[in-house]
């Protein structure tokens, strides 16, 4: 693939994105605009994540791609192959062996460590978007820390459902300052954001925003004093590996109402089964 530059993007674009990344790391949780490029995959498939990955990946990296916890779905396989062909780097499905992980909708169950980079794909970066449609106003609200309206949404959830119904993309406050959408990860993964030793990068291609949570940054999920934040629990274990503490997918196995619960993180599940 010598017709393409290393990792597809040209060097000027990578530098532009790296500058945005540096700014994002310097202001944890703050959305930094960047000149998002047209990528050879459609919006909504991870164009933001792919551009961030292309800007930070190096020849010595070991690369892993996760889609909804799995390494073997179309999106994960395609993006992994894309970088195999445009960079020639080694790839893996093992979380502990990877140095760079691009993910959609999950943070791996295996704890990340210092030196690893997790790139999350973001569809809508603005946490206040459905409460305030004007971009100019949401930017002001971020600048002035006017985040009370986010609690109006949580209040509504508790009023209607008795508890906060938001189960994914659950809003967080980063470093005590910026309100952030953690991308559509289940709220089960929110505690993993807090003081994570790895560098977490967020890329939104269509919305042209990059933000970051640097290593060991405090990240707090919003809640009320009398309705504290909680994560999902299952009263059953993984049908394949028996894990009781992992995020579960419910899979319909026949047309007679049969179903099974399995780990969403395929790497975690396979290694527990000793493969």
């Amino acid at each position: 693939m010598s017709a393409y530059n290393f990792a597809f993007l040209d060097e000027q674009t990578k530098r532009m994105i790296r500058r945005a990344l540096l700014k994002a790391v310097a202001i944890p949780g703050h959305q930094v605009p960047f000149g998002s490029r047209e990528m050879p995959l459609s919006y909504g498939w991870g164009t933001g994540g792919v551009q961030v990955t292309a800007s930070v990946i190096g020849p010595d990296d070991v690369f892993k791609v996760i889609d909804q916890g799995a390494d073997d779905t179309t999106n994960a396989v395609s993006i992994r192959q894309f970088f195999e062909r445009t960079t020639g780097v080694r790839t893996t499905t093992r979380t502990d062996a990877a140095t760079l992980i691009q993910t959609r909708h999950r943070i791996p169950e295996t704890p990340l460590r210092e030196g690893q980079i997790l790139v999350l794909q973001v569809p809508i970066p603005e946490p206040l978007r459905w409460l305030e449609p004007r971009e100019i106003e949401t930017r002001k609200m971020h600048a002035l820390e006017e985040y009370g309206v986010m609690h109006v949404r949580l209040y509504e959830d508790i009023t209607r459902h008795g508890h906060v119904e938001t189960a994914y993309d659950y809003p967080v406050l980063v470093n005590g300052r910026y309100l952030m959408r953690p991308s559509p990860i289940p709220k089960f993964d929110n505690p993993k954001l807090d003081r994570n030793p790895a560098l977490l990068l967020f890329g939104a291609g269509r919305e042209k925003r990059i933000y970051a949570v640097p290593p060991y940054t405090p990240v707090r999920s919003l809640d009320f004093e009398d309705h504290p934040f909680t994560v999902e629990r299952w009263d059953r274990t993984c049908a394949l590996c028996g894990a009781a503490d992992a995020f579960m997918d419910e899979i319909v196995v026949d047309d007679k109402g049969g179903r099974m619960f399995v780990c969403s993180d395929t790497d975690h599940c396979e290694r527990r089964r000793g493969r």
């Binding site: 006017e146 009370g148 009320f224 004093e225 009398d226």
Partner: peptide, 15 residues
């Protein structure tokens, strides 16, 4: 929620 909004804007966090 309409009545509570200004309270929450001023930092009330007890449902």
């Amino acid at each position: 929620a309409n009545v509570g909004e200004r309270l929450m804007a001023l930092g009330a966090r007890h449902y």
